[in-house]
Design a protein around this nucleic acid. Structure first.
Length: 604
RNA sequence: GGGCUGGUAGCUCAGUUAGGGAGAGCGUCUGGCUUUUAACCAGACGGUCGGGGGUUCAACUCCCUCCCAGCCCGCCA
């Protein structure tokens, strides 16, 4: 659900005050345009127990009393805390964990919170012996409210709106996603296209999640009883919702039929016929932010399956229909949909709302993730740069903290993961980290392998400058990263990271993006250095192995009264046009001798 | 304007859920390993725990207030 927020753009409208004086912060708020996702926080907080009046009580929340009742110990892993809260409800099996989002466009990393946060909770509950069903609703009966700037083809490749028939898409504004053709002409609908992308991403991360189409749920009649319930007592529905939304007035009817004439979602129901399970409506304009999607003025009749509940009712409706026990949601829902949803669940539907958990949002390279602005990164893109377990680790971190995924510093994230992994195996002297790793690590990796080998990410990036796998392995061995008794499988797995790091170096075009220079770089050395290089060339020409060359570099430096570092730098300059690199001697020992000799003599 | 959640070392973050030593990794610097070359070891530097006030023998932790960031309080999701 959260991502659906296409909307926030509306925010910009209001602040025309910018001219003003005060650099008051508030107007920064409009920035948000669609930030969709993020990560974050769990709602668990203790404030609730004191309040009684709805609406003012903190939304988040597991009340303190719940936790006291369950005598909950403090856990190092947030998913255990959530699992405690769920168990305290004494839920029926299977326990249902839900997430959901509108298939409004490319699913980015933030949307994945809806799946990953639930995944960890599901995993913990399964470990505790429960049967768990993790579902994900594609809220695809929602109307397309505005055109995304970027789409993704069925392979997950990002493409611009210009690469598809934007005009055709534009004509579908206001229609349910499931009634809009796939811009790529492959899937059954716009909704199906993006839902399948999300499913593919879940598969890539190894998360077993059951995808459900909201449109199908309506079509099957799953929502019938909910719609009946809501419409049978519109007065109560209005009263409850009006406490959260000022706009609700006496004419408000919480049902949005799909216009049988133009196919758009309508907002104006004129009468309800409970006996026949249908409503009369007028296809009026739909306001979306500062724009209007025009209605066709058609007056028609729709059954309870030919329309949808407004989100504020639909969400609790899903809880009831699916028997949801736990649902994570973005911070945007914490103060809006959740409080009203909780109230509607209890007051209108007479059910207990699920255990909630608010997650903070992620940012990408320091900026809000935004589908509309195009500041997004998809799961497939990230998996080109690091292993799935590292990405799962990212989602295992405290949801309450906003986190930035800085692609230029992915090495830091990978290093953190490696340390987290070592902590699991008891190799890190850090109580807190170890406690966290003991609980979370098993759910982060596919397989717990004490013999796994991890090359430091930046070192892997260094290895990426050479193509030959055997050469990479040799260099890794020389640096002591591969034990002598390592299995071939472990070695292959370790070297797989080199490809990721190489791609990262190229994409970031950073200090690791260099390769053996085919041509002699533009260099100049002082006499002593030049003489040392010539001397080294002769040594190499005489035929020595890498280890000998490495030692000789030290010897040569001394003989020519040079700092060892100066000679190394000269060597790196010659071969990589850089000031640093891999262990030079061993590296040169692996190259074609003639090439090395010529290059050391600055001849080629 | 009101509310919610964050604000801990240069960077990434733990620690706050019964108040009592401010921590880790990385980075930087120094020294060592008679091969320093994206390697290892030792050590150092580095923080007014966003600011201020309060409670307390004692506050990163509790209370008040202010600042910063994001979100919600219209619609929609």
């Amino acid at each position: 659900m959260n991502d659906t927020t296409d909307t926030t753009d509306t925010a910009d409208a209001p602040d025309e005050t910018d001219t003003a004086d005060a650099p008051d912060a508030t107007d920064t708020a409009d920035t948000a345009d669609e930030t969709d996702e993020t990560d974050g926080t769990d709602a668990i907080d203790t404030s609730a127990d004191t309040e009684t009046d709805h609406e003012s009580s903190s939304p988040h929340v597991l009340s303190a009393t719940d936790r006291e009742d369950s005598n909950t110990p403090h856990h190092a892993f947030w998913a255990d805390e959530v699992a405690d809260a769920i168990e305290a409800r004494d839920p029926d099996e299977p326990i249902v964990i839900k997430g959901g989002v509108s298939p409004s466009g490319v699913a980015h990393l933030g949307n994945f919170n809806e799946i990953m946060r639930g995944y960890f909770v599901a995993a913990v509950l399964r470990e505790r012996g429960h049967e768990v069903r993790q579902v994900f609703t594609s809220d695809d009966k929602d109307p397309l409210r505005k055109l995304p700037r970027k789409l993704a083809d069925s392979e997950g490749n990002i493409v611009g709106l210009g690469d598809v028939d934007a005009g055709a898409l534009g004509r579908n504004l206001g229609k349910p996603y499931t009634d809009i053709p796939d811009p790529f002409g492959e899937a059954d609908s716009y909704a199906a296209h993006f839902a399948s992308l999300l499913q593919a991403d879940a598969d890539r991360l190894g998360v077993p999640v059951e995808m459900l189409s909201n449109t199908e749920l309506y079509a099957e009649g799953a929502f019938d009883s909910v719609v009946e319930r809501v419409l049978s007592d519109v007065e109560t529905a209005r009263t409850v919702l009006s406490a959260y939304q000022d706009k609700v007035d006496d004419s408000y009817i919480p049902f949005n039929p799909v216009c049988e004439s133009c196919g758009k979602i309508t907002e104006t129901v004129t009468s309800i016929d409970l006996a026949a399970n249908r409503v009369d409506y007028v296809c009026t304009d739909l306001t979306v932010g500062d724009r209007t999607i025009e209605g066709c003025d058609h007056e028609g009749t729709a059954t309870f399956r030919e329309g949808k509940l407004p989100w504020r009712f639909e969400w609790p409706g899903q809880w009831q229909v699916l028997g949801v026990d736990f649902e994570p949601f973005g911070k945007d829902h914490a103060e809006g949909s959740w409080p009203s949803g909780e109230d509607i669940a209890r007051t209108v539907l007479d059910i207990d709302p699920p255990v909630p958990m608010t997650y903070e949002w992620f940012t990408l390279n320091g900026e809000a993730l935004s589908s509309s602005a195009g500041n997004i990164v998809t799961v497939p893109e990230i998996l080109e740069l690091l292993e799935p377990e590292v990405l799962r680790y990212f989602f295992a971190l405290n949801p309450r903290k906003a986190r930035d995924l800085d692609l230029s510093r992915l090495d830091q994230l990978v290093d953190d993961f490696d340390r987290f992994e070592r902590a699991y195996f008891g190799e890190v002297d850090d109580e807190d980290l170890t406690a966290f790793a003991e609980r979370a690590y098993p759910f982060v990796v596919d397989e717990i392998d004490p013999d796994r080998i991890r090359l430091p990410y930046t070192f892997a990036a260094v290895l990426g400058m050479v193509e030959d796998p055997a050469f990479r392995e040799q260099l890794a061995r020389d640096e002591g990263h591969i034990p002598d008794d390592a299995s071939q499988a472990a070695i292959d797995a370790a070297l797989a990271r080199v490809e990721k790091a190489r791609t990262w170096a190229e994409r970031m075009d950073n200090a690791y993006n260099y390769r053996l220079q085919a041509e002699l770089p533009d260099v100049s050395f002082d006499d002593a250095t030049a003489a040392a290089l010539d001397s080294l060339a002769s040594f190499v020409e005489a035929g020595h192995d890498g280890e000998a060359i490495q030692s000789e570099i030290y010897e040569t430096a001394r003989e020519h009264d040079l700092d060892v570092s100066e000679l190394f730098e000269a060597g790196y300059r010659l071969f990589f046009d850089e000031t640093q690199g891999p262990r030079l001697g061993e590296f040169l020992g692996e190259l074609e001798r003639e090439f090395v000799v010529d290059r050391l003599r600055r001849e080629a």
